[in-house]
């Protein structure tokens, strides 16, 4: 089981769109996939047409009162399941803070699912906290969507600093550009420059595209409702590149 997290401290950069679309692609290639919507806003749950509600809330999950496999539910797609969000996830931090090793708690929760799923996508809330720190520790890779603007680069460096300061080493940082608008000069410049400074960066750019916005209307993955669109194509390229980096091909 590989754990991939979509993360950025910044909000509205395409984390959820990425998690949902990549999860769909993985399932469409024969993998068994779980998306855990860790954001109390429940956007991923929304895309999967699921009410963000978990009985007992995050407390029951973290304390092991409700095993994750009882909370997992199916989606519109075969082999793509969801662990829904719950509004109580906003308190997950304070529950985890009480633990000596919060990352272990997350791992212990996921372990029973390791036989069942090939991939788990963790769709994170835009924050930096004990929860995100644990996510960094348990994940094989952090997929970080970056909008090519100066401000969003700053937040990216903040994330790196945080990870270094905490001495977290096991996670691969895989930033990539998201919501790229080729008509904007600044976008084009940053898209060219950053990979030189940051050679680990993924080369696929996800363009700013109305098909991706329409995910909210269609409530599904672009690969499903707009399979030959440019955006479906972009996510496919992104997924190939990620698999290549993680030696999954």
């Amino acid at each position: 089981m590989r754990i991939l997290a979509t993360y950025n401290l910044k909000g509205g950069v395409g984390k959820t769109a990425t998690a949902v679309n990549l999860a769909w692609l993985a399932a469409s290639e024969g993998a068994r996939v779980l998306v855990w919507d860790m954001d109390p806003q429940g956007a991923a749950s929304f895309y999967f047409r699921t009410r963000p509600k978990v009985k007992g809330g995050s407390k029951a999950l973290l304390r092991g009162k409700r095993p994750l496999e009882d909370v997992v539910i199916g989606t519109e797609y075969d082999n793509l399941d969801l662990l829904p969000a719950d509004f109580s996830y906003r308190h997950m931090d304070s529950h985890l803070e009480d633990e000596k090793k919060p990352a272990r708690v997350i791992l212990r929760m996921l372990r029973p699912l390791s036989e069942e799923y090939d991939f788990v996508f963790l769709d994170c809330a835009p924050s930096i906290s004990v929860v995100s720190e644990s996510v960094f520790k348990v994940s094989d890779a952090l997929l970080v969507p970056l909008i090519p603007t100066t401000l969003s680069l700053r937040t990216f460096y903040q994330i790196i600093e945080f990870i270094e300061k905490k001495g977290i080493t096991g996670v691969r940082m895989l930033p990539f550009f998201s919501m790229v608008d080729r008509r904007k000069r600044l976008h084009n410049e940053i898209v060219l420059e950053l990979p030189m400074k940051w050679p680990h960066m993924l080369l696929t750019c996800v363009p700013y595209a109305s098909d991706i916005e329409k995910m909210g209307v269609n409530r599904g993955a672009v690969g499903d409702f707009a399979r030959s669109s440019l955006s479906a194509r972009a996510y496919r390229d992104l997924w190939e590149e990620i698999k290549g980096r993680l030696d999954l091909t």
Binding site: S28, E29, G30, A31, R32, D78, N79, L248
Partner: peptide
């Protein structure tokens, strides 16, 4: 019930000719 599926692929003569991934592996 569906255990695994792969999209956009025709049946190859041998499983080893499939694209790499969990479906092929299985």
């Amino acid at each position: 019930t569906v255990l695994r599926w792969v999209d956009g692929v025709e049946m190859p003569r041998f499983a080893r000719d499939l694209r790499r991934g969990p479906f092929r592996e299985r």
